[in-house]
């Protein structure tokens, strides 16, 4: 392998690429997990809200 190529590849301007890859991955995975947690809660609320009235006193009081 030729030396200049080696130099350019180890150059500090590669850092933004490295940061971009990790930030992107972290944001997407964390975002997905948080969205699903939020969705679970909102669905659970919806199911509780539309369940028959006999269930309500127990959960409200």
């Amino acid at each position: 392998m030729d030396f200049t190529l080696l130099q350019s590849q180890a150059a500090p301007e590669n850092m933004p690429y490295l940061a971009a890859a990790f930030v992107l991955t972290g944001a997407v995975l964390l975002g997905y997990a948080l969205f699903m947690a939020w969705r679970a809660n909102s669905l659970a609320r919806e199911i509780r809200a539309s369940s028959p009235s006999t269930e309500l006193p127990r959960s409200r009081e």
């Binding site: 995975l29 997905y32 997990a33 699903m36 947690a37 969705r39 679970a40 909102s42 669905l43 659970a44 609320r45 919806e46 199911i47 809200a49 539309s50 369940s51």
Partner: peptide
């Protein structure tokens, strides 16, 4: 973790769909 979470959410989605169906197709607030 994501898989189990997604399966749990999917189960809730199924239940919510069932509840919506049971309440005569009425759109519930949520």
């Amino acid at each position: 973790y994501l898989l189990l979470q997604r399966i749990a959410v999917r189960r809730l989605e199924d239940q919510a769909a069932g509840v919506r169906l049971a309440s005569g197709g009425q759109a519930s607030p949520g």
